[in-house]
Design a protein around this nucleic acid. Structure first.
Lengths: 148, 148
DNA sequence: ATAAATGCAAAGGGTTTGCAAAGGC
DNA sequence: GCCTTTGCAAACCCTTTGCATTTAT
């Protein structure tokens, strides 16, 4: 029992799979599952360290793999040369808006867009499985010249 | 003057920028600009070598950079861990459909989809610059069980 | 006690860079 | 001949792996 239900779900996953519940796994899971940002592996390590609970790089990657397998975390590739991770919320699917100035990532969901991808795929003989949309632009703050 | 007008355009670009027209650059440009596939840097090198005109990896990358700067080639990131390149055709923008079975990549263009990304971005205060959509699914051939 | 996880460092893939040698102009 | 390009290898970045040590169960 932790402060966060999501972390408890991860503990449940570990137990079900006879995987030891270690301090490192908890620290990493808590950091990643309670974050509202899209963290890179390195950022996860930094945040865990900042919270006073040091972990090795390999452990971060290995635990992220486990979190991905558990389905509690999903990975994103914004073409930066490395992956980012975020908690898998109940949102079935969402798109991303990325600010080309400050790097901020916003999420949104659009039913019409969703439907349109299915229609387009089918019109070309494809049985649609999933899709991924990223829109790049300048966010409101950066447009109005707010200092980050 | 080569067999391919696009290659000639690249030669023109090199001349305009006082960049030497080398055999390697021609070989790489011809391979990439006349390809109908999305080639990786490694594949470009392989194809050039297969054509009996060997080039070094560094040269491939540097020439691709030049081709990107010339605007004759665009880069794509399909999340494979490396980039792919394709000739920039006259299509202003196009989306990609990827078959999850055979890996085939199809391109398409859809005005409505395009407009929708602008509307969505603006509704969240973003000044849209560009976007990228990839739809994953199973192509017709793979659905009907055609042996690759 | 036992089997697994950790941490470190080394290896691994894709890409870039530094520098001497080669080659357009 | 000058100056850029080439090619090789080393350097880089993110990620994975090997192995001795620590740890959960």
């Amino acid at each position: 029992m932790s402060d966060h239900p999501v972390v408890d779900r991860f503990v449940g996953y570990l137990r079900e799979h006879n995987l030891p519940v270690t301090a490192q796994r908890l620290a990493i899971a808590e950091t990643l599952l309670t974050s509202h940002r899209h963290l890179s592996a390195e950022e996860v390590a930094q945040e865990v360290t900042a919270a006073g609970r040091k972990v090795g790089t390999a452990t971060v990657y290995r635990t992220i793999d486990t979190l991905l397998e558990s389905g509690l975390v999903v990975e994103r590739d914004f073409g930066e040369g490395f992956r980012r991770f975020e908690p898998a919320r109940d949102i079935p699917h969402h798109e991303h808006l990325i600010c080309t100035q400050c790097g901020k990532v916003e999420e949104f969901r659009d039913e019409r867009l969703e439907r349109m991808t299915t229609i387009v795929a089918e019109s070309r003989g494809f049985a649609r499985q999933r899709h991924r949309l990223v829109i790049h632009g300048v966010c409101k703050d950066c447009q109005t010249g707010v200092s980050r």
